[in-house]
């Protein structure tokens, strides 16, 4: 089937964004399940690492929800989550290499996400770039909408302009 032209809906969960949401959902599930097992079965062995796993899971869930919902609020939520995620993977990645004793068991973010093909390191960067692009798109649409509204008020709006049913 060829891709239909011009019918693509915008938003953070459409197009490449849908891929991003899929990857985030996978990581939310993976990190969440891992943290649940670790916390339930051997919390005493490495409490810091396991609590970090749980934090990572929460961040991935929030980012997934924010990207999937979209809109101004969704974008803001996802922006915070992706920023925390990037900071987390950088800090935990560095610390886990400098002081392996502090991280006796792997977390999603250990060694910059080596255990997950470094996807945890790339993912927040892609997320932030996508959010910036979406914010620009939204700002452009808003500006266009205002322009059209102004033209309409002046009686010069084109027949097929936005806001005309």
């Amino acid at each position: 089937m060829p891709e239909p032209a011009g019918t693509r809906p915008g938003g953070t969960a459409a197009g490449p964004g849908r891929v991003l949401v899929a990857v985030y959902a996978v990581f939310a599930l993976a990190a969440g399940a891992r943290a649940a097992v670790q916390l339930a079965t051997r919390f005493d062995e490495a409490p810091v690492a396991y609590l970090l796993s749980a934090l990572a899971a929460v961040v991935y869930v929030v980012a997934t929800v924010g990207l999937a919902r979209g809109g101004r609020g969704g974008r803001r939520t996802a922006l915070v989550a992706c920023s925390v995620e990037l900071a987390g993977v950088l800090v935990v990645g560095t610390l886990s290499l400098l002081d392996p004793a502090a991280f006796p068991d792997e977390t999603v973010w250990s060694a910059f996400g080596r255990g997950y093909g470094f996807v945890p390191l790339v993912l927040p960067v892609l997320g932030l770039l996508w959010l910036r692009h979406q914010a620009e798109v939204a700002a452009g649409q808003e500006a266009a909408g205002e322009e059209a509204a102004g033209e309409e008020a002046a009686g010069t709006a084109p027949e097929d302009g936005p806001g005309r049913a």
């Binding site: 891709e3 239909p4 019918t7 693509r8 809906p9 459409a14 197009g15 490449p16 849908r18 891929v19 899929a22």
Partner: peptide
Amino acid sequence: EPSRWAGTV
């Protein structure tokens, strides 16, 4: 997903 990105998903 109605666009080409469905395949990547």
